[in-house]
Design a protein around this nucleic acid. Structure first.
Lengths: 216, 216
DNA sequence: TTGAAACATGAGTCAACATTCAGGTTCCGA
DNA sequence: TCGGAACCTGAATGTTGACTCATGTTTCAA
């Protein structure tokens, strides 16, 4: 809900609010919208809920946004940027891609847990703003593919048969774990989950020989 | 949209339609609802769209369903049953769990492709009928866990650290591949995708030694 | 000090449904 | 052939909520 380079979805052409007061109001609306949409869902949320929470008049909403859908899209885009940022940060200390996978999964779970409401917005975007949703995952997938390609070059992971497929499978795994353990069940320790999940993603289901060559 | 043992969500207590005519009308409504919801989404679909497509009067809808949400839930439950059925069928010929995984992924993709509309209903259930959605995946997860447990006993797969986590990761992977290759891109050959995906699920990302022990 | 740009407001407009209901029509056993 | 059960119908009702607009208020540069 903050640093956008400039080109935006605000009703106000490309410039956005001109005064400090305006920027504050916009921020309040964006935050309120995120909380309301996250808590009640898009269709259950009325503009008046948003303006009520933001503490501004109903009409004020339309000073900043052309429509209900527009805030929603802005929110999705914002979440995408934030999630990518959180993930790339979490991954910085990794020795190799395999470790990065584990760190990434855990960071993702933690991120979802601390942003449950906004995460819901992203998922609902699939139906409210399909374009925004696709962009969200496509952008993600593109960056992820790069990572895998580099890692494969370095021999840190197997080349694989199709990186696009791998990336979507991996995103799907994390996404579902995000629902199951980030939204439905927030108790289980995220490091444990990430360990189990990354073990699967790294080593697969296939049976593994015992460490010390066991005869028979 | 058909064989339910009896206990149902129809407005008519538990018994359902008493005559052949009634059963036909119910079927028509259910089919029409599936198509409309699938094509336009829950909120964009009006009851009159459904009855229009079904070729019955508006009021007739309420002879069979208590509300809009009720048809929707019925549809989700129906999809769950059908999907489980399709998957367990596809898996029957498998030699072991690893092969079953590949067959399952492919069957799932094919299923989504041939039931795009209804698949969308399942995903939207997350917001329209969260209970139905959770049931859908929980039922799925329970059955899947059993499969994995048996397979681990037989030594066909590694024991793993946590089957609940594995199962959700695997479901997530398939689900995303279902969106990516079952809904958004229906061109790519499903067997190829399933092969690449199951390779990842079975062997993981980790680099694999060359077949013939290459002395570095 | 002033006027115009920027911002704020909430009552009112309007269209879109979900659901109801009062009154048919069809089917079928007796 | 009759009566009632099952089924069908679509006009009318009532609510909800996005969006508009005419009218303020605030800010700030000149």
């Amino acid at each position: 809900m903050s640093q956008h380079s400039g080109s935006e979805a605000e009703a106000d052409k490309a410039t956005g609010p001109k005064t400090e007061r305006g920027r504050r109001t916009l921020r309040k609306l964006l935050d309120a919208a995120g909380e309301e949409f996250g808590a009640r869902g898009y269709h259950e949320t009325a503009i008046s809920n948003i303006t009520g929470r933001a503490g501004v008049g109903l009409g004020t909403f339309y000073v900043y946004f052309k429509s209900k859908e527009e805030v929603f899209r802005a929110l999705v885009a914002d979440m995408g940027a934030r999630t990518r940022h959180a993930l790339s940060e979490s991954t910085k200390g990794a020795q190799d891609r395999l470790e990065a996978e584990r760190l990434g999964i855990q960071a993702y779970l933690d991120f979802v847990r601390t942003h449950q409401a906004l995460y819901r917005v992203v998922m609902e975007a699939q139906f409210v703003a399909p374009e925004a949703y696709r962009d969200y995952y496509r952008t993600f997938a593109a960056a992820y593919r790069q990572q895998l390609a580099h890692a494969a070059d370095r021999g840190e992971i197997s080349p694989g048969q199709d990186d696009e497929v791998r990336v979507w499978a991996l995103m799907g795994a994390s996404s579902f774990l995000g629902i199951r353990y980030g939204v439905w069940d927030v108790e289980t320790d995220s490091a444990t989950i990430a360990a189990a999940a990354s073990d699967l993603m790294i080593n697969g289901l296939a049976p593994r020989p015992k460490k010390n060559g066991d005869a028979s």
